[in-house]
């Protein structure tokens, strides 16, 4: 199967007064049609910036996408999104790639009715008339589980609870039946009970529409039941990429291993496991420095001289499984040729 999106060697920097922030340092990944790709990492790892960079959504200035490709292909079409003009990429945004953001409270315009905020992108990209867009919106509101949708069309965001607002955000994201939906920590700001509903809703819509979902999160715990594949990011690079089961059972990057040890787990009986949680010692990398070594080396127990001298590329370690590490944790020594 051909990937719908191929990102190669993407570099994004922010030119702040305090210096250059090296936010994304050569990111590579593929996204396949209809799959769910989880992007995991702590704040500052570059997971959001990566997705924003693809569709020219980072604030510029100070941000700037400085290199790489993002080939978006569907049907016969294939285009490098990074080469498109703002006016061209604009139609990809919302039309082909939808977004769900973290905070549904601040992400909706407080002065516009929720209906008009959904209908807006339909008139923009699908050329609907106002009444067409309205009836489609009402239908869509019902589909995302908002009761009494006819009347709710004219409601303002502050009339809605957080969960309901996130449903509205989801409706906005899928309004034009996009090929890809990027969900940027869509459940972080919500109550735990609501989180599950939102996850279910996205999964249901994904099946209905066959859309690929990129699920950005800092929580490896929620990924398990959700994703097909996982991308682990650290210091503006992809450090590990694997099918979800592989990642949990056979992590190959010391950072991923550390992350997994830091998740509290419930065993089959619902009791918390007695195994002690571990924390990763040290602080996240200083993004003001240009990346010349493995970003994780300062915190890594396995680091050896090569890790301090060059940036490890993503090395194939299994089927669809890559890890950006010179150390072979399985064999317990430097990887061949290292």
């Amino acid at each position: 199967m051909e990937p719908i999106l191929q990102v190669r060697d993407m570099v994004t920097r922010f030119y702040s007064v305090d210096g250059v922030v090296h936010a994304i340092n050569g990111v590579n990944f593929d996204l396949y049609e209809g799959e769910t790709l989880a992007v995991v990492g702590e704040s500052g790892s570059g997971k959001s910036v990566t997705m924003m960079s693809i569709v020219n959504l980072i604030p510029q200035p100070p941000g700037k996408v400085e290199g790489g490709q993002a080939i978006f292909s569907y049907g016969e079409m294939a285009q490098d999104l990074l080469q498109l003009s703002e006016d061209e990429i604009r139609h990809v945004r919302g039309g082909q790639i939808g977004f769900i953001f973290q905070d549904p409270i601040s992400s909706l315009n407080p002065t516009m009715t929720i209906g008009s905020q959904i209908a807006e992108s339909m008139t923009e990209h699908l050329g609907f008339s106002a009444s067409e867009a309205r009836s489609k919106t009402v239908e869509l509101l019902r589909n995302v589980g908002i009761p009494d949708s006819e009347r709710r069309f004219n409601a303002y965001p502050h009339h809605f609870s957080g969960g309901m607002r996130q449903r509205v955000m989801i409706a906005i994201a899928v309004a034009c039946r996009p090929k890809i939906v990027i969900a940027d920590e869509p459940t972080t700001a919500l109550d735990v009970t609501v989180q599950a509903q939102i996850v279910d809703l996205v999964k249901r819509l994904q099946e209905q529409m066959g859309v690929a979902v990129v699920w950005i999160t800092h929580d490896l715990g929620v990924v398990a039941g959700l994703a097909d594949r996982v991308l682990v990011m650290y210091g503006g690079t992809v450090v590990e990429s694997a099918p979800v089961d592989n990642l949990y059972e056979d992590p190959r990057h010391p950072y991923t291993i550390g992350l997994l040890k830091a998740i509290p787990r419930l065993d089959a009986t619902g009791e918390a496991e007695t195994e002690e949680l571990e924390v990763i010692e040290g602080v996240p990398p200083d993004l003001y420095q240009e990346l010349t070594l493995c970003p994780f080396a300062p915190r890594c127990g396995y680091a050896f001289d090569r890790c301090w001298a060059e940036v490890p590329p993503l090395i194939e370690v299994g089927v669809q499984h890559g890890a950006a590490c010179f150390y072979d944790v399985e064999r317990g020594g430097p990887r061949n040729g290292s």
């Binding site: 959504l57 945004r93 039309g95 905020q117 992108s121 923009e124 309004a175």
Partner: peptide, 18 residues
Amino acid sequence: RNEDYIRTARSKGISQFK
């Protein structure tokens, strides 16, 4: 311009003028 809902509007591909 820095508000989240403007980012949402941009993510919807609404034109700069609108």
